[in-house]
């Protein structure tokens, strides 16, 4: 059990601090109401199952580290997607934004020393990646905010356009020397007290934006807009302006994701991100965030990101084809949305 405790500590630790302080009396009722509760139960059942099915093999330190590193980028993307989906929006373009940001910063790096480039170049590359992501996200947000084009279409167009621009810039080939060795040896492979920097970064992003969502005006407006945009407008909230910010935040985090990707893999992987959007949306929805807007949490997304990650590793460890993971996640996803719908209907009747 100690191994498990440390595992959930590493996985859900950042998020565990997030529920707002409340009286002990209200706690049990609140926990029972929270949609994260049953998702967390699924995660714990999976962990318990694999631990029993493969004693001593699952949840070795190596496994935990691997799961966390694999999940780190999806977690960062998932945090942004949580905000977007809570506004009743969607962003299909995240994988393409990640590629575009990676190519933009990668091209700069190639022309400023390549793999041997110095720290100054690394800093500029990071800024380029974040700026490209934010700008692309803000542009899509502005289009969504007009209210004339559904977010699904705006970001579907963005998905194609961003990827196309990346391919034009590179001729469709991943350029060599896109990432500095400095970046790879620090953020990519480095560790802080035994915890990979990628995981530390993802945890920090998760905690910060989890608190922003749960405890600040920005988060409150995000929920209000997803819940009833007309009410938000009547309350004097600049709905359009807030949507731009939310999509820009998603872009910023996709840009950060590109930095994490480059540091971890050293290549732009232009063709490797076409299903990022589906994976991240799945994780967010698994975590109890409603596709219809108004409800959700970063804590839920953390759990939602780790369910597929645990499934993949677990299935490999117990010797089942890991492709069963896709089947299982797909089924759970459909069930999760069904349950969300049921909850919504019963609540509205009551």
């Amino acid at each position: 059990m100690t191994a498990q405790d440390s595992a959930t500590g590493a996985a859900a630790g950042p998020a565990a601090q997030m529920p707002p302080r409340a009286g002990l009396a209200g706690w049990s009722a609140r926990i029972a109401r929270m949609s994260e509760t049953w998702t967390l139960a699924i995660l714990l059942v999976l962990v318990a199952f694999f631990s029993i099915a493969a004693p001593g093999k699952f949840f070795t330190t190596y496994d935990i580290t691997q799961i966390a590193v694999n999940a780190a980028i999806y977690l960062v993307l998932g945090v942004g997607m949580t905000f977007v989906i809570i506004t009743a929006g969607i962003d299909l373009s995240i994988g393409s934004i990640l590629v575009l940001a990676a190519v933009a910063s990668g091209e700069y790096n190639i022309h400023h020393g390549g793999a041997a480039s110095g720290w100054g170049t690394v800093a500029v590359c990071v800024l380029i990646a974040l700026a490209v992501g934010t700008a692309w996200g803000a542009l899509q947000g502005a289009l969504v905010a007009t209210g004339k084009i559904p977010a699904l279409i705006v970001t579907l167009g963005g998905l194609g356009a961003a990827l196309g621009l990346a391919e034009i810039a590179t001729g469709g080939q991943d350029p060599a020397g896109a990432a500095s060795d400095h970046l790879q040896s620090s953020l990519g492979y480095g560790k802080l007290l035994g915890v990979p920097w990628l995981v530390v970064l993802a945890a920090a992003v998760t905690v910060v934006f989890g608190l922003v969502l749960a405890g600040t005006r920005f988060g409150n407006y995000t929920f209000a807009i997803g819940s009833n945009p007309a009410a938000a407008r009547r309350a004097g909230i600049g709905v359009g302006r807030h949507l731009v910010k939310v999509y820009a935040l998603m872009g910023l985090l996709a840009g950060l994701g590109s930095v994490m990707w480059l540091s971890s893999y050293g290549t732009t992987s232009i063709a490797g991100h076409s299903t990022d959007n589906l994976k991240v949306i799945t994780a967010v929805v698994l975590g109890g965030t409603s596709l219809f807007g108004g409800r959700g949490s970063v804590l839920g997304t953390v759990i939602g990101v780790f369910i597929p990650a645990v499934l993949t590793t677990g299935l490999i460890v117990i010797g089942v084809q890991q492709y069963w993971q896709d089947v299982a996640v797909g089924a759970v996803l459909v069930a999760a949305v069904y349950i969300d719908q049921m909850r919504r209907q019963s609540r509205e009747r009551g």
Partner: peptide, 25 residues
């Protein structure tokens, strides 16, 4: 104005709705 079609955000609690747009920090 109190609107006929209830200009509340149903997913927010009563306190948050009361102070929507006029939050206390």
């Amino acid at each position: 104005t109190v609107y006929q079609d209830l200009s509340l955000a149903p997913d927010l609690d009563a306190a948050a709705n009361l102070y929507l747009g006029r939050e206390i920090f």
